[in-house]
């Protein structure tokens, strides 16, 4: 996964580990420490999905907060012992919010914000090259249709399989596979030069 230099304040928990049942129970009871631990555990994943799906900006933080508020509100109904993982559940909430947000207003997808672009110009040559690749990837993904981009993001960046995504987006599994195939084809064409160089 992405190692983000701009977020070194604390050691992030391993992305694969789900939060434990005791912490979830304490969250349900309204324990502030447990709730903080819950948010900290999943905030990076939610921010990553939202910012890649809708572009960088202050709206990402607003939407991320809405995701966590909804999750904490509905935590009593979440079955920690069931098959659903908390990360998948949160991404389901996030993906529905993304769909709602797109319906409400057309969100312009920004390839990268100015801050990130400025950071890359001052790095050594390899870092600069990586920054260029990242911008090209972001730009190419921004050209994908929304439905293809969501499936691509959830598969490529969050490690979800077609079944999970199908249930998250309430679409057939075959549709997930089709969208993923088309997204990859589209990106392959758009990034032909970049991928050959790397």
């Amino acid at each position: 996964m992405i190692q983000v230099a701009a977020y070194p304040a604390r050691e992030p928990a391993p992305e694969t580990a789900e939060i434990d049942a005791d912490t979830l129970a304490a969250c349900r009871a309204g324990d502030p420490e447990a709730m903080t631990a819950f948010v900290r555990r999943y905030e990076r994943s939610v921010f990553a999905f939202l910012s890649r799906a809708l572009g960088h900006g202050p709206h990402v933080e607003d939407l991320a907060q809405e995701v966590f508020l909804r999750a904490l509100r509905a935590l009593a109904r979440f079955d920690a012992a069931g098959s659903a993982r908390a990360s998948t559940w949160l991404l389901t909430i996030a993906s529905r919010l993304v769909i709602d947000e797109r319906r409400k207003r057309r969100v312009p997808t920004e390839p990268l914000d100015e801050g990130l672009a400025a950071q890359t110009t001052t790095t050594p040559e390899t870092e600069q090259r990586r920054g260029e690749v990242g911008r090209a990837l972001s730009r190419a993904a921004g050209e994908l249709p929304d439905d293809q981009r969501d499936v691509f993001l959830l598969t490529e960046f969050h490690g979800l399989d077609a079944s999970d995504i199908a249930s998250m987006l309430s679409i057939p599994k075959a549709t997930v596979k089709t969208r993923l195939f088309r997204a990859r084809e589209h990106l392959r064409v758009l990034l032909k030069g970049i991928l050959e160089e790397t």
């Binding site: 983000v4 948010v39 921010f47 999905f49 990402v60 907060q65 990586r130 920054g131 990242g134 990837l137």
Partner: peptide, 16 residues
């Protein structure tokens, strides 16, 4: 290489 937006340090506290 496609960078994601990262949360602010006090995001969790504000959300809670």
């Amino acid at each position: 290489e496609w960078k994601a937006q990262v949360p602010a340090n006090d995001f969790a506290a504000r959300t809670v």
